[in-house]
Nucleic acid binder design. Sequence first.
DNA 1: AGCAATATGACAAAGAGTTTACACAACCTG
DNA 2: CAGGTTGTGTAAACTCTTTGTCATATTGCT
Lengths: 230, 230
Amino acid sequence: MNSKRILIIEDEQPIREMICFALENAGFEIQEAADARQAQVMIAEALPDLILLDWMLPGLSGIDYARRLKKEDLTKEIPIIMLTARTQEEDKVQGLESGADDYVTKPFSPRELAARIKAVLRRGGPPAEDEILKANELLLDTASHRVSVAERLLEIGPTEYRLLEFFMSHPERVYSRGQLLDRVWGSNVYVEERTVDVHIRRLRKALEPHGHDALIQTVRGAGYRFSTRV
Amino acid sequence: MNSKRILIIEDEQPIREMICFALENAGFEIQEAADARQAQVMIAEALPDLILLDWMLPGLSGIDYARRLKKEDLTKEIPIIMLTARTQEEDKVQGLESGADDYVTKPFSPRELAARIKAVLRRGGPPAEDEILKANELLLDTASHRVSVAERLLEIGPTEYRLLEFFMSHPERVYSRGQLLDRVWGSNVYVEERTVDVHIRRLRKALEPHGHDALIQTVRGAGYRFSTRV
DNA sequence: AGCAATATGACAAAGAGTTTACACAACCTG
DNA sequence: CAGGTTGTGTAAACTCTTTGTCATATTGCT
């Protein structure tokens, strides 16, 4: 097993250690750096296979550093996963724009982190490709984060957007409230399952005026499903 | 609703009672133990679905006990949530290191505790694999929870769906009403055997318009059978 | 025919999902 | 930095389906 080398750039030592331990456990080889300067030194010595980069860094911010790494020929192929404490969509967008291949929101479980790392390493390329998801006349553009029906943009909240994006990329399949919480809200969020109902409602309400609310279907006793079939 | 069994290992009785009350309220079944020794006895009797483990225990410390649980084959699959009074990052690191799946810092709200327990339990099970069961033109797709005949979706209630799924995965074989109750309704459910007749009827009714009701056959004096043979 | 085993239709309680309302926090913005 | 706007999660009221049972009709067997 030739283990992959991962460089962690994170100023808070406890967090760094926690991550470090978790990832070593998962079979990775770890290098640590507290800021961009240190990181540069380590990179000069040996190129890591993947970089875990904290959003907030003393000195050069994480996002700026990511940009810089993606500019350098030497380092631009290295996948970057951003660590961020904020949950705003905006941050995610910016993070991805800066060249990050994925982002993980703190607090995260070691398991989740390891899973994302493996996923990113596996695909090699950036996953952030823009997509246009379609279902009948309903379009969702991941690049612009917009949803439209027949050229008509429709109002939709952040959570509803994520919910819809998830549904549209996993159609014709039932998801329990619990699964939706894990996959749309994130696996380390503690929310009532009933809350899903409410957001389903909001999503349906947003789709309703355009007559596409039937795409979100209730499966009694099982969960919800996105389907173009009646 | 088969409630999950949770084992609380906590030496301070008032806290234990508080947690106990909160979780029973949340619909869990609770077992209590004051230390690792007692816990071992309870585990020997019946495996809990999740363990709540106090960080500080008299005798074997919580963290050591967690490690031990994660070593034993019998118990290593059981998720553990650590209860800790301290807030130091350091503790969190150690807690996770010891194999805990999550930790909660005292003082915590009952709601938070219940939510995290649910979240951890949710992750547990392996995702049920998808199957497409076929019988002549009759299709049952477990991923989308749908039943169709020649591209035509058909209406079917939850119980009828489960019944059909069971039949289709165990065809050409007679099951008594009692067996069906056990395997479709679940063991330890108190329902009249005649109730099965009613659901068989409902299932047949759903299949009828598509001409597949003959698949559900009555075996007088024995039970029912799903068969594609006449 | 006579008896026992099923089939069926109706019904009321329990249950699951839907909606509305509200509190709160994060955020604009003048 | 007030004062409004959003976005979220929770709670509670409300709706509508599902479900278990009964009473009654049918069917199958000897």
